[in-house]
């Protein structure tokens, strides 16, 4: 996999009035990765995306795309970018095909064949000659993705791309994005609130809070880092008191769970074998041990909670 940086944030800062909306971002987005951009409302995600595509000026610092500054070499930089900013706002009074033709004309060397190919790819062949005003949100989302991919960009920026898609559509989009990144080496930059979706889709996660980058990591490392999981334990009803005492020896507290013979303990996943051995050695009949994996959502909310 080609791992050269496609996007380079260099001390990127946006100040509006006296308020710092985005504060000194420094990170790279590499070719061939799906990059998730998280943050609560008002963290500056959309502002960052708008700076990346040159819709708003950068107050301090710069953003390089394929080595070209979006501020001073706009046309060379934006040539490699495809995207949807916020909603897929297309011309409703034109047909889907006219919309694509419109964007194709703004780029050099996009053939009719390419347009048809992309229409087929996003599954809009049946309705491409209907007016966009008759499209559902999901269809507009797909048309938006079609216009973003038309010129084979090396950076694809998608803001809330799963908005309005049905479960099958979301799954297909997820697979498409992964394929684009992993097979064709496109850098895919996705911002979303759907944390479970981001967990499935992204290779790397960056978290923005109050305009500052608070974390950037591979998605698995991000979730499991210094993570305390919940371990659910089921034992013979008569042995629960004994079990509690044994666990107390490990300096942990077992708390009664939902079932009559269920307990749960806060502990690291790698301590589970030790616990298991202890229980077996003391003749406890363990019916089940189950580690509840933490999700991106847990981690994200925990992180936001800490900051507050």
């Amino acid at each position: 996999m080609n791992q050269q940086p496609i996007v380079q944030f260099k001390h990127t800062t946006k100040i509006i009035g006296r308020k710092t909306i985005v504060n000194d971002l420094n990170f790279d987005v590499l070719a061939g990765e799906v990059f998730g951009f998280l943050g609560p409302n008002g963290a500056g995600k959309t502002t960052t995306i708008r700076m990346m595509v040159g819709l708003i000026k950068i107050s301090r610092g710069d953003i390089l795309i394929n080595g070209h500054s979006i501020a001073s070499q706009f046309e060379q930089a934006i040539r490699h970018v495809g995207g949807i900013v916020e909603n897929p706002d297309l011309y409703k009074y034109l047909t889907g095909y006219q919309n694509l033709k419109h964007y194709a004309r703004m780029d050099s060397g996009i053939s009719k064949k390419r347009i048809n190919e992309i229409v087929e790819h996003v599954g809009l062949k049946e309705s491409i000659h209907n007016k966009v005003s008759s499209y559902s949100l999901g269809m507009r989302q797909r048309l938006g993705i079609a216009q973003a991919l038309l010129h084979r960009p090396s950076l694809l920026i998608l803001d809330e791309p799963t908005n309005g898609l049905d479960p099958a559509g979301i799954r297909k989009l997820r697979n498409n994005l992964k394929e684009l990144a992993h097979q064709e080496g496109v850098a895919v930059f996705v911002s979303s609130h759907l944390l479970s979706e981001m967990q499935l889709m992204c290779d790397k996660i960056a978290v923005l809070q109050k305009g500052k980058l608070v974390s950037i990591e591979n998605v698995q490392a991000f979730i499991s880092k210094d993570s305390i999981s919940r371990v659910y334990l089921e034992v013979e009803a008569s042995q629960t008191e004994l079990t509690k005492m044994l666990i107390a020896d490990l300096n942990k507290t077992a708390i009664a769970g939902n079932g009559p013979n269920e307990l749960w303990i806060q502990m690291n996943k790698d301590e589970v074998p030790e616990l298991n051995k202890l229980l077996l050695d003391n003749g406890i009949r363990v019916l089940s041990i189950h580690v509840q994996e933490r999700t991106l959502e847990d981690k994200f909310l925990e992180m936001m909670g800490e900051e507050k």
């Binding site: 046309e75 060379q76 909603n87 297309l90 011309y91 964007y103 703004m106």
Partner: peptide, 14 residues
């Protein structure tokens, strides 16, 4: 008003 300005401006044209 229709929001189409965004996709119009992110093209390689000044």
């Amino acid at each position: 008003t229709s929001g189409t300005i965004k996709l119009l401006l992110i093209r390689p044209h000044s």
